[in-house]
Computed example of a mutant assay.
Amino acid sequence: MSPSRNRCTQWVAGSAVALALLFAGAATVASARGEAETPGPRTPSARSADAGFARDMAVHHQQAVEMSFIVRDATGDEDVRRLAYDIAHTQANQRGMLLGWLDLWDLPKTAPDGQGPMAWMPDGGHSGHSGHDMEGMDHDGALMPGMATRTELDRLRAARGEPAEVLFLQLMTDHHKGGVAMARGCAEQCTVPVEKRLAQGMAEAQQSELDLMADMLAARGAVPRP
């Protein structure tokens, strides 16, 4: 084979490899956006359940992280501190994933005009929540079911020792109940497979922590709030 023909063969082979790598990269991005597993729009819309869950759960998680750091400094009880660490670590990581998906989808981290928190759920997230949860909706800083109000957070910051432990466990129980409802809503309505799997995992993990917190409250002569 002549040198020129050999160079031509090498160039064609190299081009084929480059094209293969280019297509592989495009397929990876498409899969992350849900294109490889679901038909339909290239990315979720700003008003979709996928985007709504990512936005709202990121806010919900942020408060759980905040409460966990507050109680960590308010008690020396190792069981409560360990639970607080686990919640803060897990939910901070999950929050990063949710915000990362919004960036990947090129969607804003705030709701579109005219769409408030929980609008992506059919009933706005109201079903299955106690009267206390409903009173907290859009009042005193509580944007979603289960979220603590500003007044409740101030009480937690001021508490020390066992009273801080009990209040934290009660507030986090309410918080987890709201989070489980949201996660189950996404597991049913979201269309991006990886987000649906994360939501299902959230619901299962937080339900397990609800059982643990009920036991911890009982050990302190207390119960979850009605």
Rank of each mutant, 00 (worst) to 15 (best):
L212G: 04
R95L: 15
G185N: 02
M1F: 12
M147C: 14
M121F: 15
H139G: 04
R184I: 07
A199W: 03
M172S: 05
L156Q: 07
R95Y: 08
G116E: 12
R225H: 09
L198S: 15
R42E: 07
P3L: 03
R95W: 08
S15Y: 00
R5E: 04
G136W: 05
W101Q: 12
M182Y: 00
E195C: 09
A54V: 14
S48D: 14
L143R: 13
A199R: 03
G125C: 09
M57T: 14
V180W: 00
H176N: 01
E204F: 02
V192Y: 10
L153P: 03
L198F: 14
A111M: 08
D79C: 01
A203C: 04
T90M: 07
V223P: 00
Q207A: 15
H89A: 11
N6T: 11
A18L: 12
S4D: 10
M144H: 02
P39V: 10
R72Y: 15
A199C: 14
L21G: 04
D79M: 13
H89E: 09
L167C: 08
A142Y: 07
V192P: 11
H175A: 12
A16P: 01
A49K: 01
A111L: 12
W105F: 08
C186F: 13
L171G: 03
P3S: 02
E152A: 08
E204N: 10
A205S: 14
M216G: 02
K177V: 14
S48Q: 10
E135Y: 11
S130Q: 11
T28W: 11
R197N: 06
R160F: 14
E204V: 11
D50F: 15
F168Q: 05
T28Q: 13
H129V: 10
T75D: 01
R157C: 04
R157G: 04
T90Q: 10
P193K: 05
T191S: 09
G131C: 08
E165N: 09
S127C: 06
A187I: 02
Q170K: 10
M147I: 13
S31N: 10
A36T: 15
R72E: 08
L107A: 09
W105R: 02
M121C: 13
T43C: 07
D106E: 12
A218M: 09
V194A: 10
G116Q: 11
R33L: 09
A164Q: 01
P117E: 02
T110Y: 05
H176T: 01
L156D: 08
